[in-house]
Amino acid sequence: MRTAILASGRGSNLQALIEAQRSAKLPIEIVAAGSDQFGAGALKRAKEAGIPTRVFHISDYPDRQAQEQDILIWMRENQVELLLLAGYMRVLGSQFMRQAWFPILNIHPSLLPAFPGLHAQRQALEYGVKISGCTVHFVDEGLDSGPIILQEAVPVLAEDTEEGLSQRILAVEHRLYTEAVRLVALGKVNRIGRRVQILQ
Protein backbone atom coordinates (compact mmCIF):
# COMPACT_ATOMS: atom_id res chain seq x y z
CA MET A 1 0.00 0.00 0.00
CA ARG A 2 1.22 3.47 -0.86
CA THR A 3 1.59 5.07 2.56
CA ALA A 4 2.08 8.59 3.89
CA ILE A 5 3.11 9.50 7.42
CA LEU A 6 2.36 12.68 9.35
CA ALA A 7 4.47 13.45 12.42
CA SER A 8 5.15 16.48 14.63
CA GLY A 9 8.07 15.35 16.78
CA ARG A 10 11.28 13.39 16.79
CA GLY A 11 9.90 10.56 14.66
CA SER A 12 10.82 7.38 16.53
CA ASN A 13 7.64 5.61 15.40
CA LEU A 14 8.29 6.79 11.85
CA GLN A 15 11.79 5.33 12.10
CA ALA A 16 10.41 2.00 13.33
CA LEU A 17 8.03 1.88 10.36
CA ILE A 18 10.83 2.73 7.92
CA GLU A 19 12.99 -0.07 9.34
CA ALA A 20 10.13 -2.56 9.22
CA GLN A 21 9.45 -1.67 5.59
CA ARG A 22 13.13 -2.07 4.72
CA SER A 23 13.27 -5.50 6.33
CA ALA A 24 10.20 -6.60 4.33
CA LYS A 25 8.08 -6.97 7.48
CA LEU A 26 5.58 -4.46 6.11
CA PRO A 27 3.86 -4.77 2.71
CA ILE A 28 3.77 -0.99 2.31
CA GLU A 29 5.73 1.66 0.43
CA ILE A 30 6.26 4.87 2.38
CA VAL A 31 5.94 7.42 -0.40
CA ALA A 32 5.78 10.68 1.59
CA ALA A 33 6.29 12.11 5.06
CA GLY A 34 4.88 15.41 6.28
CA SER A 35 4.84 17.54 9.39
CA ASP A 36 3.20 20.64 10.81
CA GLN A 37 6.58 21.64 12.33
CA PHE A 38 9.58 22.96 10.40
CA GLY A 39 12.17 21.47 12.73
CA ALA A 40 10.57 18.08 13.35
CA GLY A 41 13.11 15.31 13.79
CA ALA A 42 10.74 13.06 11.84
CA LEU A 43 11.47 15.06 8.67
CA LYS A 44 15.20 14.55 9.11
CA ARG A 45 14.73 10.81 9.56
CA ALA A 46 12.52 10.62 6.47
CA LYS A 47 15.00 12.59 4.34
CA GLU A 48 17.83 10.32 5.45
CA ALA A 49 15.72 7.37 4.28
CA GLY A 50 15.17 9.00 0.88
CA ILE A 51 11.47 9.69 1.51
CA PRO A 52 10.09 12.96 0.04
CA THR A 53 8.97 15.38 2.76
CA ARG A 54 6.68 18.40 3.08
CA VAL A 55 5.95 20.90 5.84
CA PHE A 56 2.40 22.12 6.37
CA HIS A 57 2.95 24.83 8.97
CA ILE A 58 -0.24 26.57 10.03
CA SER A 59 1.39 30.00 9.60
CA ASP A 60 1.48 29.39 5.83
CA TYR A 61 -2.31 29.12 5.61
CA PRO A 62 -5.27 31.39 6.35
CA ASP A 63 -6.88 28.71 8.51
CA ARG A 64 -6.73 25.05 9.47
CA GLN A 65 -9.16 24.03 6.74
CA ALA A 66 -6.84 25.41 4.06
CA GLN A 67 -3.92 23.57 5.64
CA GLU A 68 -5.80 20.29 5.60
CA GLN A 69 -6.95 20.79 2.01
CA ASP A 70 -3.29 21.16 1.02
CA ILE A 71 -2.48 17.92 2.84
CA LEU A 72 -5.24 16.16 0.88
CA ILE A 73 -3.88 17.55 -2.40
CA TRP A 74 -0.40 16.30 -1.42
CA MET A 75 -1.83 12.86 -0.66
CA ARG A 76 -3.71 12.74 -3.95
CA GLU A 77 -0.54 13.69 -5.83
CA ASN A 78 1.25 10.80 -4.11
CA GLN A 79 -1.65 8.36 -4.75
CA VAL A 80 -1.78 7.54 -1.05
CA GLU A 81 -3.76 4.48 0.07
CA LEU A 82 -2.99 4.63 3.79
CA LEU A 83 -2.19 7.48 6.20
CA LEU A 84 -0.29 6.86 9.42
CA LEU A 85 -0.16 9.43 12.21
CA ALA A 86 3.08 9.02 14.16
CA GLY A 87 3.11 11.62 16.89
CA TYR A 88 1.09 14.08 14.81
CA MET A 89 -0.10 16.61 17.37
CA ARG A 90 -3.17 17.97 15.57
CA VAL A 91 -6.67 16.54 15.41
CA LEU A 92 -7.74 16.21 11.79
CA GLY A 93 -10.91 18.18 11.05
CA SER A 94 -14.30 16.80 10.08
CA GLN A 95 -14.02 17.99 6.49
CA PHE A 96 -10.67 16.23 6.10
CA MET A 97 -12.14 13.03 7.52
CA ARG A 98 -15.15 13.17 5.19
CA GLN A 99 -12.93 13.63 2.13
CA ALA A 100 -10.33 11.00 3.06
CA TRP A 101 -10.51 8.04 0.66
CA PHE A 102 -7.97 6.05 2.67
CA PRO A 103 -7.84 4.52 6.17
CA ILE A 104 -6.06 6.60 8.83
CA LEU A 105 -4.28 4.98 11.79
CA ASN A 106 -2.84 6.47 14.95
CA ILE A 107 -0.78 5.21 17.90
CA HIS A 108 -1.53 6.56 21.38
CA PRO A 109 0.45 5.94 24.61
CA SER A 110 -2.40 4.73 26.82
CA LEU A 111 -5.01 2.01 26.93
CA LEU A 112 -7.80 3.99 25.32
CA PRO A 113 -10.40 5.15 26.15
CA ALA A 114 -8.35 6.00 29.25
CA PHE A 115 -6.20 9.14 29.10
CA PRO A 116 -6.75 10.55 25.58
CA GLY A 117 -5.01 13.70 24.40
CA LEU A 118 -1.67 15.13 25.48
CA HIS A 119 0.59 13.82 28.27
CA ALA A 120 -1.15 10.45 28.56
CA GLN A 121 1.71 9.01 30.62
CA ARG A 122 1.54 11.92 33.07
CA GLN A 123 -2.22 11.48 33.30
CA ALA A 124 -1.74 7.78 34.11
CA LEU A 125 0.78 8.49 36.87
CA GLU A 126 -1.34 11.25 38.40
CA TYR A 127 -4.39 8.99 38.39
CA GLY A 128 -2.45 6.21 40.06
CA VAL A 129 -3.21 3.37 37.65
CA LYS A 130 -1.23 0.14 37.94
CA ILE A 131 -1.35 -0.66 34.21
CA SER A 132 -0.93 1.62 31.22
CA GLY A 133 0.11 0.76 27.67
CA CYS A 134 -0.57 1.81 24.10
CA THR A 135 -3.34 1.61 21.52
CA VAL A 136 -3.42 1.55 17.73
CA HIS A 137 -6.74 2.81 16.45
CA PHE A 138 -8.52 4.05 13.38
CA VAL A 139 -8.80 7.84 13.37
CA ASP A 140 -12.23 9.45 13.43
CA GLU A 141 -13.37 13.02 14.05
CA GLY A 142 -12.88 12.81 17.82
CA LEU A 143 -9.82 12.98 20.07
CA ASP A 144 -8.23 9.50 20.19
CA SER A 145 -11.74 8.07 19.93
CA GLY A 146 -11.66 5.85 16.83
CA PRO A 147 -12.20 2.07 16.74
CA ILE A 148 -9.39 0.13 18.41
CA ILE A 149 -7.25 -2.24 16.33
CA LEU A 150 -4.62 -3.43 18.84
CA GLN A 151 -3.69 -2.69 22.44
CA GLU A 152 -0.90 -3.86 24.72
CA ALA A 153 -0.51 -3.34 28.46
CA VAL A 154 2.60 -1.96 30.16
CA PRO A 155 2.82 -2.16 33.96
CA VAL A 156 3.25 1.08 35.89
CA LEU A 157 6.08 0.69 38.41
CA ALA A 158 6.15 2.36 41.80
CA GLU A 159 9.34 4.23 40.88
CA ASP A 160 8.13 5.33 37.45
CA THR A 161 8.59 8.90 36.31
CA GLU A 162 6.80 10.31 33.28
CA GLU A 163 9.99 9.93 31.26
CA GLY A 164 10.63 6.36 32.40
CA LEU A 165 7.09 5.20 31.73
CA SER A 166 7.09 6.97 28.36
CA GLN A 167 10.25 5.15 27.27
CA ARG A 168 8.92 1.72 28.23
CA ILE A 169 5.61 2.36 26.45
CA LEU A 170 7.45 3.70 23.39
CA ALA A 171 9.36 0.44 22.97
CA VAL A 172 6.02 -1.39 22.81
CA GLU A 173 4.55 1.25 20.47
CA HIS A 174 7.20 0.55 17.82
CA ARG A 175 6.32 -3.14 17.70
CA LEU A 176 2.55 -2.78 18.07
CA TYR A 177 2.17 -0.08 15.39
CA THR A 178 4.19 -2.14 12.92
CA GLU A 179 1.96 -5.16 13.54
CA ALA A 180 -1.26 -3.17 13.17
CA VAL A 181 -0.07 -1.62 9.90
CA ARG A 182 0.93 -5.07 8.63
CA LEU A 183 -2.54 -6.46 9.40
CA VAL A 184 -4.30 -3.54 7.69
CA ALA A 185 -2.06 -3.74 4.62
CA LEU A 186 -2.73 -7.48 4.30
CA GLY A 187 -6.49 -6.96 4.52
CA LYS A 188 -6.75 -8.80 7.82
CA VAL A 189 -8.61 -6.04 9.68
CA ASN A 190 -12.40 -6.03 9.42
CA ARG A 191 -14.16 -2.97 10.84
CA ILE A 192 -17.86 -3.15 11.72
CA GLY A 193 -18.95 0.06 13.43
CA ARG A 194 -16.77 0.37 16.53
CA ARG A 195 -15.85 -3.29 16.51
CA VAL A 196 -12.62 -4.38 14.83
CA GLN A 197 -12.02 -8.03 13.99
CA ILE A 198 -8.56 -9.42 13.24
CA LEU A 199 -8.92 -12.09 10.55
CA GLN A 200 -6.76 -15.20 10.53
Rank of each mutant, 00 (worst) to 15 (best):
G50K: 04
G50M: 02
T3Q: 09
I104P: 04
H119E: 13
L83P: 08
W74A: 00
R194A: 03
N190G: 06
P52I: 02
L85I: 08
D160E: 02
D63E: 12
G117A: 07
Q15C: 12
L17T: 08
H137K: 10
Q151R: 10
F138C: 01
L150R: 03
A42R: 04
E48Y: 07
L170K: 12
P147C: 07
H108E: 03
R54M: 12
R90D: 08
G128E: 02
E173T: 05
A4Y: 03
I107Q: 02
L157W: 14
H119M: 11
Q69P: 06
R45L: 01
R22L: 14
I18G: 11
R2F: 10
R195W: 13
P147Q: 10
L82K: 05
A33S: 15
M75T: 10
L14D: 03
R194T: 13
R98L: 15
R168F: 08
G193H: 04
L105N: 14
E81A: 01
L157M: 13
G50A: 00
Q79I: 12
H174T: 06
I169A: 10
I5V: 15
E141M: 13
L183V: 11
L6S: 01
L125S: 04
D70I: 08
P155K: 11
Y177F: 14
F96Q: 05
V139Y: 05
G193T: 11
D70S: 15
A124G: 00
I192L: 13
E19P: 11
V172Q: 09
